[in-house]
Amino acid sequence: MGRLQDKVAIITGGAGGIGQGMATAFVKEGAKVVIVDLNEEAGQEAIKHLQQHQQESTFIQANLAEHDKLESIVEQVVDKYGKLDILVNNAHASKNKPFLETTQKDLDLSFDTGFYPTFYLMQAAIPHLQETKGKIINFASGAGIEGHANQAAYAAAKEAIRAITRVTANEFGKDGINVNLIAPIANSPGVQQWAKEQPEYYQDVLENIPLRRFGELEEDIGRAAVFLASDDSNYITGQTINVDGGSIKF
């Protein structure tokens, strides 16, 4: 029996990168995972991989920026599986620009794909999570916690996500719902491309990570998410878990 045996989980942005790493870690622990992603081709490929471990995992193609359709994602999952145990809000798109060059369009992109989907999917999911005493995992970032240069739109949306995570942790703790955040540094495809394009900057960032490596998608970020989704984290809520090799220190 896995730590997530027969749990039903939604993971947004699950067709690649950190999302796929978490999805893989979840199915290996027995979860039925529903990947939600904009990329149809990548989503179908990801599901083929997941179904090697959990045949009942499925893919929903959706544009998370279409906020009026987000509730239907949760409804589809509950209709199919009869319940929802875990919601992971991972998807987020943003553009990095200096603060004075950041436009309304940049802010809209970051909030429309990150903050608002997190907000509305939580609203849709919480009534079902009250029934299962479920878990919500949202995503923060060192960009917001430390205020990284050139990431105003991304950092603002991530800190807004942190705020509603703490609010919902307080409001729904009485119902047995745990709401936490992961702030990762991961060896994602984007980071790998960045390493090729800006090797000196990449090396500088790497040398400032105490563990001297970027986190692995499944083994590091995925396993941390499994912990937060499992009964092992039942007495943890409203917290930001920095899965970043020691980069952020308090």
Rank of each mutant, 00 (worst) to 15 (best):
Q123M: 10
G82A: 07
P117W: 04
N178G: 00
N180E: 08
I248Y: 10
E66K: 08
S247A: 15
H128Q: 12
H67G: 10
G246S: 10
S247M: 15
G2F: 08
T237G: 01
K80M: 09
V78P: 02
H67S: 14
H148S: 14
I126Q: 00
K7P: 01
L109D: 03
Y201D: 15
S247I: 09
E56I: 03
R213E: 14
D106N: 13
L70H: 05
A15V: 07
A93Y: 05
K135W: 03
I137R: 05
L228P: 07
F115Q: 00
Q54A: 11
D204C: 14
I47W: 01
E146N: 15
V205Y: 09
A152Y: 05
G215R: 02
A160C: 12
K133N: 01
H53P: 01
I236R: 06
K32C: 07
N242M: 08
L4Y: 03
I221M: 08
K97L: 15
N208E: 15
D232R: 02
D232I: 02
K105C: 00
L64E: 00
E56Q: 11
Q104W: 13
K249A: 12
D204K: 15
F115T: 07
I236Q: 06
A183C: 14
D204Q: 15
K135N: 11
V167W: 12
N96P: 10
E159S: 13
R3K: 12
N234G: 13
L228C: 01
G245S: 05
K196Y: 09
T12F: 00
A91N: 02
K158D: 04
Q193H: 11
L100K: 12
L4S: 01
I60M: 08
N187W: 11
T132I: 00
H67N: 14
I47V: 15
W194N: 08
E219R: 13
G134L: 03
A62V: 04
E216N: 12
V8F: 05
Q51M: 09
H49W: 00
E218T: 14
D85Y: 06
K196S: 10
A225I: 07
Q76G: 06
L107D: 04
I11N: 01
M1I: 12
L181G: 03
I209V: 12
G246Q: 07
Q203G: 11
T240N: 08
K28L: 12
V226A: 03
A62L: 08
E200P: 09
I248W: 09
L228G: 06
L38S: 08
L64K: 05
F59H: 05
E29M: 11
E40K: 14
Q203D: 15
I47S: 08
E71C: 09
Q239C: 10
A225S: 09
Q5S: 12
I236L: 14
S230G: 04
F111E: 01
A9E: 04
N178K: 06
G238P: 02
F227S: 02
V78G: 06
T168L: 13
K83P: 06
R213P: 14
V36Q: 05
A42D: 04
S233R: 02
N39D: 15
L109A: 09
K83H: 08
I221P: 04
V226M: 08
I10K: 07
A31P: 11
A140N: 09
A224T: 10
G2M: 12
T240C: 11
L64F: 04
I145V: 15
A153Y: 02
Q239L: 10
